[in-house]
Design a protein around this nucleic acid. Structure first.
Lengths: 324, 324
DNA sequence: ACATCCTTGATGTTGGGCATCAAAGCAGCT
DNA sequence: AGCTGCTTTGATGCCCAACATCAAGGATGT
């Protein structure tokens, strides 16, 4: 790997001059500029970003911690984060925590050791405040850590209202809901509150199932769904995510419940799967792209010394399809 | 951010001694060791990995370039790569090229400038050989660049055979196939060859549609599927991936073609979607986890100076579900 | 007294940025 | 011709943070 000295030697100029060309600083004649460029090209020279970062005291790398990237929600979120980060000249260092609190803290320290310029955390576990360097550029997605750490999320409560009200408007009177595990302070839990509130406001007694941590990790909700559909004769269900909703379609078919005639189904997220099932799924669309965009923006603004909002809440929309 | 000097000052020792404690090298008395540890803890010190990498001439970072992470195949692949890399103490720098050849080359250079220890490329575009530093640890997934660059892939040809033979064994005689764009030297193209060969070997004239680049990017194959189903009265189709297969289910329903009675469908990949459709999809499972594992291994072995295979081909399996 | 081990530190690398000082070339002006 | 000031290049040295090499003092043993 050639370094700046090699370029200097090759072009017959000094390191100082090469550095000046590289950084476009001071006086440089057209002739030397060309000489340097051609030497760089010949040697396939590339400035060592480690050395640059070390000197400049910033690396142009953002750390991203998420539990998984298999789940389409996170896949799309990551896609969006990468897009906006790379457009701003930042690279991504990716960490998948797999819901493992210890691993998450490990990653957090590792990223700080690697001098990333900011961290985007979209995670379910762990109390991490003590491992966070004070004033380090940081943002969480869908997760409140404390009042001073900014977070970005979609309007989960409103999503829950939209979904529930939609079912009620269509005439459903026995409403069910399945949610993820309740332990964590996720914004996603507000969907459940919204479901319960909206039911009560309409004089309906809500039926709520909470899936186990284990089933949640495995994306296997069949038992919970079947339990709900057989124990209660629901005519409308609001599921915590689209995967649950797709599985509900399958269980309904098995139980010979016709969709949407006997049972109406609303999911959450609007991942691509929602338009690939038969029937297609009515769902609440989260603006995932914008979530990623704002998360990156919050970091960049912190780096720029700009005051950033502690909460950024983005609107959701009801996407009506065949399951209702 | 405290550095090693601060620790040295705090503990009243020299930088050298602190470094020795950090790296467990040479003779250190128990007393100094403790003094250093307590100073480190007090300051919340973390070694600067940039500086370490600069000195050591390796960063313990792997670069990963893939077109997207929204597609479940790549999501799962990335998940696997991250898992195995992180188990070996490596971090991931992620680059999403979005099928953009220029961006891919940019990323390739950026990664080399950032001194990653190796690059895993899983991509569709670009001729990149000239931008590759000779002897740089490198591996591609599902893509042959030239004879000397190692690649890992699943046995696409055999997958095509399995799928086609399965349809034939079930009595199908009018077989169709839709494939992605043909331009690139992807291993995935061998699925098409396998389809054609297997048909011919059984005295069946293959019907093949090739989707446009654009539809492929948008994951929108409806037109091609509908064209195939209406123009030819196929009784069995083999689709290039599971998303195509799921969309085929939808088109079939719209055209009132019953699955699997009138039409049998086989997909490819076995992404989670395949078990979430109604009916569930018969498909060819790629061992995505192993692909990621071997890709990482090939890099690590190159780093270790071990001779690596230029081809690593992993077995596929037929997963029979309700669509056949 | 001398060898050997233990323990610590001073100094110099790693690749590149930058600031300072130095020096020369060249043009314009008096 | 001499002076001023702009342009262009280079040498030197210090910075970033960590680590390696060598050097040296102290303790211990024979």
């Amino acid at each position: 790997m050639p370094n700046i000295k090699d370029v200097a030697r090759k072009s017959g100029l000094s390191v100082t001059t090469v550095s000046r060309v590289l950084n476009n600083r001071g006086y440089i004649s057209e002739k030397t500029r060309k000489a340097v460029y051609s030497a760089m090209a010949e040697l396939h020279y590339q400035p060592n970003e480690l050395a640059r970062s070390l000197f400049r005291q910033h690396s142009n790398i953002l750390g991203v911690i998420m539990p998984s990237v298999e789940h389409p929600f996170f896949g799309k979120l990551l896609q969006s984060i990468e897009k906006h980060a790379s457009a701003a000249g930042f690279k991504i260092m990716l960490c998948l925590s797999r819901q493992d609190a210890a691993k998450e803290i490990e990653y957090l320290q590792m990223l700080q050791g690697n001098k990333v310029d900011g961290i985007i955390l979209s995670s379910r576990s762990a109390d991490i405040q003590s491992h966070l360097n004070h004033k380090f550029p940081f943002v969480t997605i869908d997760r409140i850590l404390n009042q001073s750490i900014p977070y970005v999320s979609s309007d989960n409560y409103r999503g829950g209202c939209l979904a529930t009200q939609h079912l009620i408007d269509l005439g459903c009177r026995r409403l069910g809901h399945i949610t993820g595990p309740q332990k964590l302070q996720l914004q996603a839990n507000r969907r459940d509150e919204a479901f319960i509130d909206t039911c009560r406001q309409n004089g309906i007694e809500p039926i709520v199932y909470s899936s186990s941590e284990e089933n949640f990790s495995n994306l296997d909700y069949y038992q919970d769904i079947e339990a709900m559909l057989t124990e209660h004769r629901v005519d409308g269900v609001f599921l915590g995510n689209d995967i649950m909703a797709a599985q509900t379609l399958q269980v309904a078919q098995k139980l010979k419940i016709s969709i949407p005639e006997q049972l109406k189904i609303v999911g959450f997220d609007d991942i691509p799967l929602a338009s690939l099932t038969t029937p297609t799924l009515t769902t609440i669309r989260q603006p995932i792209d914008e979530i990623g965009k704002y998360a990156v923006e919050v970091i960049l603004n912190q780096l720029g010394g700009v005051v950033v909002p502690t909460q950024t809440i983005l609107p959701v929309t009801l996407v009506k399809r065949q399951s209702t």
